[in-house]
């Protein structure tokens, strides 16, 4: 469940690394293009996650066998 957002963190770190490599000017032309392509793709992906992804709200309970169960959770209305 937490996998998706840990990878958000990793992807952001990867993007920062790519930007620095690209800005160093030390890459050959073909590597620059590849880095540019990967960087742009990651940036677009991150923006999509930020804008469109909707997390779940669940309730953690233990069943009779001691296994954890996630059930949808809706907070009670104000009142």
């Amino acid at each position: 469940m937490s996998k998706k957002k840990l990878s958000f963190e990793e992807e952001l770190a990867r993007l920062e690394e790519l930007v620095e490599r690209l800005e160093s000017g030390e890459l050959g032309l073909e590597d620059s293009l590849k880095t540019f392509e990967e960087g742009t793709k990651i940036a677009r992906g991150l923006v999509t996650v930020l804008e469109k992804a909707q997390g779940r709200v669940a309730k953690l309970t233990e069943d009779d066998e001691g296994d954890f169960v996630l059930e949808p959770f809706e907070p009670a209305e104000e009142g």
Binding site: L50, Q54, G55, V57, A58, K59, L60, F73
Partner: peptide, 9 residues
């Protein structure tokens, strides 16, 4: 909004 929330009652 992308964060998952788990309530532990």
């Amino acid at each position: 909004p992308m964060t998952d929330i788990v309530v532990v009652p």
